[in-house]
Design a protein around this nucleic acid. Structure first.
Length: 382
RNA sequence: GGUGGGGUGGCCGAGUGGCUAAAGGCAGCAGACUGUAAAUCUGCCGGGCUCAGCCCUACGUAGGUUCGAAUCCUACCCCCACCA
């Protein structure tokens, strides 16, 4: 039920198929982020039409609202959201990083001051597993401790070791929950747990993190966390290169929170199979669109009379039907359709990028194709 | 015709003698965003230059008082309200 078949490698790049209870995912693949159980601005029907194969949800946010028991009562996240396909929930570990001012870390877990009503919420590794079990996604993520990209060795070590200790608790509790769930009346489908490599920008810590993870058991997939959190791109590339040869080849690798189109291209070249990132939808809402020839700010004045689609090479709903001049107009008048249309395009753009990469890995020409792709992308901004 | 209120940068709107090229907002222009506290945030926004500075032009119009005026005085023009 949690199988990964590696179909082809091309250099370090890989094409595979991940089989999950709710469907299969052909990799490399971009996973749109649906924090609150919705990919911001899009209907699940629209998400499907972008070609997305798997969608994320977030433990922290869904725990606060509507509460995991509500989701469980309504049939689990897949049914609740009408996505009905493969899903993955993030553990709330990223909020340890992004809500740094509102939380306190102890060995037991993390206390968050809810930005919604100010109430104190404790998330422990065990709680993160319980919440995710109730949400019922195919893949649950371990509760980790993300440190900023510029963290020194000592701080990165602290986060990495804590993540490792928490992983053990996550794993033990997850096993218990799955056993209990097998006989429970409100049984949701099986769920797998993925560990997360931490260690900041320090290669030795990254390797120790992976080593510790592999000691704790066989996993159906492994995630790389704590990247693109403020460190320079070449540093991220170096960390991926360090991990690539020692990661188990027969397991999918998920680079968390990445990324921009160029990041996908570079990370795929370094052996990554799965991605997620909020940039597609956030930038979409902010009027920034990705195209084959670079980034376009759709509010730009010189697009006023443009009759061209956002991206001439794109076959998404937005590009098939709408001109840049009209999209610009929608942003200028703050019509919400504009936010949605550019978000749809951006999500489709990354999904399609994954598809194209896969095709070229299968064809064995990923290196030359990606070089040309990057050249065109960085060439000029219009 | 009378009485009262008011005319400030593209728009709205602070400002009653120097610290005012003039608060703030809007509009406009440009940019940022990476496991979503984000349909958000940042910068520019009278003109010109040999630009951390300098020079023009500016607070209805014209004149005056003053070392110095968007701010005080006089006249005129226009707008609003009420009364005839």
């Amino acid at each position: 039920m949690f199988e990964f078949q590696l179909e082809k490698t091309d250099g370090a790049a890989r094409a595979g198929t991940l089989t999950l209870p709710h469907g299969t995912v052909r990799t490399p693949a971009f996973m749109p982020v649906g924090t609150h159980g919705a990919v911001r601005g899009l209907s699940m029907e629209e998400v499907r039409r972008t070609g997305a194969q798997i969608v994320l949800g977030n433990t922290y946010h869904l725990h606060l609202r509507p509460g995991e028991e509500v989701v469980r009562a309504l049939g689990g996240l897949q049914r609740f959201t009408t996505w009905n396909g493969p899903m993955l929930t993030d553990s709330g570990g990223f909020q340890v990083f992004s809500l740094a001012e509102l939380r306190q870390i102890t060995e037991e877990g993390v206390t968050f001051k809810s930005p919604i009503d100010g109430s104190q919420r404790m998330i422990t590794p065990e709680r993160a597993m319980e919440i995710q079990a109730a949400l019922g996604a195919d893949i649950a993520m371990a509760f980790d401790h993300v440190v900023p990209g510029q963290s020194d060795h000592a701080h990165a070590l602290e986060g990495m070791e804590r993540t490792l200790r928490w992983l053990e608790r996550c794993r033990d509790h997850h096993v218990r929950l799955m056993e209990a769930s097998a006989t429970a009346p409100q049984r949701l489908s099986a769920q797998t747990l993925w560990p997360i490599i931490q260690g900041g920008t320090h290669d030795d810590l990254r390797l120790r993190s992976l080593e510790g993870i592999l000691e704790q058991g066989p996993w159906t997939g492994i995630a790389i966390g704590g990247l693109s959190v403020g460190e320079p791109k070449p540093v991220m590339h170096r960390v991926l290169e360090t991990l690539q040869p020692v990661l188990p080849a027969d397991r999918p690798r998920y680079l968390m929170g990445v990324g921009f189109p160029e990041d996908l291209i570079e990370a795929i070249a370094r052996g990554v199979d799965l991605f997620d990132c909020v940039a597609a939808t956030r930038n979409g809402r902010h009027g920034s669109a990705w195209t084959a020839s670079g980034k376009v700010n759709i509010r730009r004045a010189d697009l006023r009379l443009s009759d061209a689609p956002l991206d001439a090479d794109c076959d998404c709903e937005t590009c098939r039907g709408y001109a840049r001049g009209y999209l610009r107009h929608l942003f200028v008048v703050e019509e919400m359709l504009g936010l949605r249309l550019v978000s749809i395009h951006n999500v489709h753009f990354l999904v399609r990028l994954g598809d194209m990469a896969r095709a070229h890995i299968l064809a064995g020409d990923y290196a030359s194709w990606s070089r040309e792709w990057l050249q065109r992308y960085h060439g000029k901004d219009l």
